[in-house]
Structure formats: C-alpha cells, structure tokens
C-alpha cells in the first residue's frame, strides 16, 4: 500500500529538483517553472498529510483548503512574474537574469 513516507520522499525529491533548477537555470522563465515545481512538491506533501495522518475530518479539510490557497497564490505569482519578465524583455531585450544586476551596490 502507499504510505505517507512514499509521498514525503517524492515531494522531497521534487522540491530539491526545483531548488537545483532555480540555482542553475539562467532564463527567468525557466526559473519560474522551477518555482512552480517547488510549489507542487509542497502541495503533494499537504495532501499526503491530509490523507494519511490520524486527523479529524475538519483537519483534513484544512489541508485541502490550504492547497487551494497555494494554487491561488501560485497563479498570482505567475501573473506578476510574467509581467515583470515581459517588462524586462522590453527594456533589456533579454530574459537572461545574469544580465540583470541592477540591484547590486
């Protein structure tokens, strides 16, 4: 049978893949995708806990509800990030974040 531990390990691996991607990818759009991966890993974890822990029903529902909110926030974040990327592309003709270092000293 599937157990909580399977879900947790899947989520951990997926999260680490996302982290690695954020650290190595150059294109802003790819970094965005990696962030979506990380958020999904977290979602899997939440649903796993809601499904397997000895919770009452309303506590389970809490796990589901928070996933709904995370999806909402992910959508928000995506919308703003895409907007920023397009603005960046307009100004710099590139979405390579190595070339964007305006926030240095």
């Amino acid at each position: 049978m599937i157990d909580l531990i399977h879900i947790q390990i899947l989520s951990a691996i997926m999260f680490c893949i996302g982290v690695y991607g954020v650290m190595t990818r150059r294109s802003a759009i790819l970094i965005l995708m990696c962030i979506e991966l990380m958020l999904n890993a977290v979602n899997i974890n939440f649903i796993g806990f809601a499904a397997f822990r000895d919770f009452s029903e309303s506590q389970r529902i809490f796990g589901h509800v928070i996933v709904v909110f995370i999806i909402t926030i992910a959508a928000v974040e995506l919308a703003l990030a895409i907007a920023i990327i397009l603005r960046l592309y307009k100004n710099k003709s590139s979405v390579n974040i190595d070339e964007v270092d305006l926030m240095k000293w």
Binding site: R25, I29, L32, M33, I71, L78, I82, Y89, S94, V95
Partner: peptide, 28 residues
C-alpha cells in the same frame, strides 16, 4: 485546469513573446 491549462499556457505565451536564448546559455 489551472496548472495544466492556464499556467503552462501562460508560460508558453511568455516564451512566444520573448526571444528564445541560445541553448548553451540556458544553464550556468
């Protein structure tokens, strides 16, 4: 619906609106 439908579509739109970089420079 949201991820498979909306998010990936939006990302593809973003790709279309920007110039796709040289493959080599995708990773550092």
């Amino acid at each position: 619906l949201i991820y498979g439908g909306a998010v990936v579509t939006v990302i593809l739109f973003a790709l279309m609106l920007t110039k796709i970089d040289d493959f080599r420079s995708l990773s550092n």
